[in-house]
Design a protein around this nucleic acid. Structure first.
Length: 821
DNA sequence: GTAGGGTTAG
């Protein structure tokens, strides 16, 4: 029942509103009229009827209207009554008719009736006007109700009281017309009426409908301070919060409701659980479900269906299965919908079979294909594409050589021809596992068994081809798609666009963009960004900038992200001023750079040793109300360190701690490197301790910075301790670190230790590539060790060992004994 | 329905 009908008196307006004691005579007339009007066909010129018409009173008319169930017949009687000489409708007969029409949701005659009320200058009590307005409201004739209210008031047919106003507001609360509601409320107050619960509640509702929660909360506070909070008020708020996706706030309020000893009704529970699940908050939906069960509301199949469906979507099969068993023990028989949802998320094949066998579902043709398809997609999702494919082939007539498990299930339940969905599942699965040719073959098979291919299937296949660089096939499919009467969608175009972006083919990418513009499609910015990024990665930042200009010329608005990527690209190729210029250009065009955009600029300036300029950029960022992130500080700290101004770096570090930006492992690594380069290894070691104390776990880069830093300061023994710690933590060091250690040991005249490191490198098979500058460093170290009498024989033995030869690039072995020129 | 992009350390 529409919530409208639950009136302020807690009863339905459908009930008869006038039940006067009729005289026996009048009663007879009413019965006569009812029987004439309900006995078809209606002959209105009937003698009897005109006789009864002369005796018609409004009391009789009300009784007749109450006795006719069909709105059409009632309306016919009502119209007939209007034309009886000497008879005039009262507000009560109008309302009786209005009530019937609103219940039957006949808006046109209802509007006409409201018009007649005014035209006939029928005077109304405040209550009657309120009733009529609510009839209009129940069929959402909000503006009409408001107009009626004004006309009746203006013509002096009624002096509305606060009940009338509350009815009007309740009607307005079916809309989101805040202004109208506020106007009526003020009007009422200025007429001397006080805003009671029945006025504030619709105000609350109208704010909720419009999503104006700040105002809604203000009204709620008023209701609360006056002690008027009830289930209805709370339901309005909770449902509205849920509708606007504020699941947590809605849930909080429900918990607060429990303190008021107010409980949700069954319908509200149902609506909320559905709402929470569709807001992807199955967690809260489940908690609500528990509350619902606790207060004794029995869940129906629909609730289990939505909850199990939600859990399957969030990939929580255990919880879904638990709920399913709960449902079954409550005596609810699962339907094919619930079963297929479960099957598609249960990872285990035996579990799937058990589920089906224990479900007690009797399959017909339609449910069999649903079941088969859900099993196919379960297999595909679990990575058993091969099995899915085999079972699928049995559906199109191939004989199965294995008759256990899933195969048996398919066999037992009979051959069912696959539908387009079955093909979609298998073709998608084949594409995802790179079996494109088989996917294409199946796709072609669909024509032979006259199955309709849908647009998604075309799109997915084309996308798969593009992603595997099979553009020829993609083009072929695109042609076939067009021939079959499908227009490529924005997805199709973007798939092709993405293909050219990935291949850094700027001219072709732009061609696609031009075509997209013709068809009114929007190129996805992620593709544009990845093209920019890709070009920048290969030092083609200038081309990337040109591409962005071309995109804008094509009329496509890009967001800050591709520009940030281009600016970063320019900075990486040391085109600092060009980067600054682009930054300024986009700012002038109205872009508001975010923290990341500023970070990119600050970092670029720091790397270009223009640290003081980066400080200016920081200030600009601050004046734009942006809060620097850890990355911002890290870049600045690194800038100062590399600029040889370790004190400014440390100042920056303490500033960042003061602003509650927690330093991360990058911050510490940067500073440790900086301190070591400044000849302060002890301070670096202290910082290391502080880092660990603060719960920041060092990663391999941090370790390597520390080890390298200590080596640079001639402390290979201390460095070795960190290397051993790395081993313990399962972190791997680059060959560079080993070479640094060897170098440091050699400088400390400890060739034995240096040899130990070399041996470790050989054992771990870590050799830098020839192009790597570490390659020559290693060669030098090996040469030195082979020159040193303490280690020379060991080195030669190590390098001569057959087992090592195979792991050790021969070039290095040979070249090791020649000094680098 | 479709998919999700830019920044920091040795």
């Amino acid at each position: 029942m529409n919530s409208f009908f639950i009136s302020r008196f807690g009863r339905s307006i459908c009930t008869k509103i006038y039940q006067a004691e009729l005289s026996p005579d009048a009663k007879r007339i009413a019965d006569g009229l009812i029987s004439i009007f309900t006995n078809k066909p209606l002959g209105l010129e009937n003698q009897e009827l005109s006789h009864l018409g002369s005796k018609l009173t409004t009391e009789i008319a009300e009784t007749v209207l109450a006795g006719i169930k069909n709105w059409r017949i009632a309306y016919k009687f009502f119209t007939w009554a209007t034309s009886q000489s000497g008879y005039h409708h009262t507000c009560y007969t109008y309302n009786a008719m209005a009530s019937i029409l609103s219940r039957a949701r006949r808006n046109a005659p209802l509007k006409e009736l409201a018009f007649d009320v005014v035209n006939s200058r029928c005077s109304m009590t405040p209550g009657a006007l309120g009733f009529l307005i609510r009839c209009l409201g129940s069929v959402k004739l909000v503006e009409e109700a408001s107009a009626l209210f004004d006309q009746v008031k203006m013509m002096g047919l009624c002096v509305p009281n606060n009940y009338t106003y509350s009815c009007l507001l309740e009607t307005i609360s079916k809309s989101d017309l805040i202004n109208l509601a506020e106007m009526r409320m003020n009007e009422m107050v200025s007429n001397g009426w006080e805003a009671d619960k029945f006025v504030l509640t619709p105000m609350l509702k109208v704010y909720c409908n419009a999503g104006k929660f700040d105002k809604a909360w203000a009204v709620f506070d008023q209701i609360h301070t006056r002690g008027w909070v009830d289930a209805h008020v709370l339901c309005i708020l909770v449902l509205s919060l849920s509708k606007w996706g504020e699941v947590d706030k809605a849930f909080e309020l429900i918990e607060r409701m429990e303190n008021y000893n107010v409980s949700l009704n069954e319908k509200t529970f149902y609506v909320l659980i559905h709402g929470f699940v569709s807001a992807s908050r199955v967690d809260k939906a489940l908690q609500l479900f528990e509350k619902m069960c606790k207060v004794g509301v029995l869940p129906d199949t629909g609730i289990y269906d939505v909850l199990i469906g939600g859990l399957c979507k969030t990939k929580e099969p255990e919880k879904a299965l638990y709920l399913y068993s709960q449902m079954k023990s409550a005596g609810i028989v699962p339907d094919i919908g619930i079963l297929t949802k479960l099957i598609s998320c249960v990872p285990d094949e035996d579990e799937i079979i058990k589920l089906f066998e224990e479900s007690g579902i009797i399959l017909d043709g339609e449910s069999t294909i649903l079941l088969y398809n859900s099993i196919l997609s379960a297999l595909v999702n679990n990575g058993s594409i091969e099995k899915a494919y085999r079972v699928f082939r049995s559906m199109i007539g191939d004989k199965l050589d294995c008759e256990t498990g899933i195969e048996k299930l398919f066999k037992v339940n009979g051959i069912i021809r696959p539908n387009p969905t079955s093909f979609n599942i298998i073709i998608d699965g084949l594409c995802k596992s790179g079996r494109l040719d088989e996917a294409l073959d199946l796709f072609k098979d669909m024509d032979q068994i006259a199955l309709r291919k849908d647009i998604t299937l075309y799109n997915n296949l084309i996308d798969a081809m593009n992603n595997s660089d099979r553009f020829e096939d993609s083009l072929y499919l695109l042609g076939e798609m067009k021939n079959s009467g499908f227009q490529p969608t924005q997805f199709t175009y973007n798939s092709v666009y993405g293909y050219f972006c990935r291949r850094e083919d700027v001219p072709e990418a732009l061609n696609v963009v031009k075509e997209m513009r013709l068809h009114g499609h929007e190129p996805w910015i992620k593709h544009s960004t990845s093209l920019v990024k890709q070009l920048c990665k290969h030092g083609r930042a200038v081309e990337a900038c040109k591409f962005l200009i071309d995109m804008v010329e094509e009329g496509f608005f890009l967001d800050i992200i591709p520009y940030s990527a281009a600016i970063d690209g320019l900075l990486k190729i040391k085109e600092v001023d060009r980067a600054l210029e682009l930054f300024q250009t986009i700012c002038a065009r109205g872009y508001r750079p975010d923290v990341i955009a500023y970070n990119i600029l600050i970092n670029g300036l720091c790397k270009a040793k223009r640290v003081s300029e980066s400080q200016d950029v920081l200030n600009e960022m601050l004046s734009n109300g942006l809060v620097p992130s850890v990355v911002t500080y890290n870049s600045l700290i690194d800038g100062w360190c590399k600029d040889g101004d370790i004190d400014k770096a440390l100042l920056c570090f303490s500033k960042m701690c003061g602003e509650e930006r927690e330093p991360n492992v990058v911050t510490y690594t940067t500073l440790i490197d900086g301190l070591c380069n400044d000849g302060r290894p002890d301070d670096a070691a202290t910082l290391w301790v502080e880092m660990e104390r603060k719960g920041c776990t060092p990663n391999s880069i941090a370790f390597m910075a520390m080890i390298n830093g200590l080596c640079k300061n001639g402390r290979p023994d201390a460095a070795l301790v960190y290397l051993r710690d790395m081993d313990k933590k399962g972190l791997r060091a680059d060959s560079f670190v080993y070479i640094a250690l060897m170098g440091a040991f050699l400088s400390n005249t400890n060739p034995h230790a240096a040899f130990g490191i070399l041996k470790e490198m050989v054992d771990k098979e870590m050799f830098p590539e020839r192009v790597d500058r570490n390659h020559s460093l290693l060669k030098d170290a090996i040469f030195k060790l082979s020159e040193d009498p303490c280690t020379s024989s060991n080195v030669k033995r190590l390098l001569a060992a057959g087992s090592i030869q195979s792991n050790f690039p021969v070039v290095v072995v040979d070249e090791a004994f020649k000094p680098t020129t």
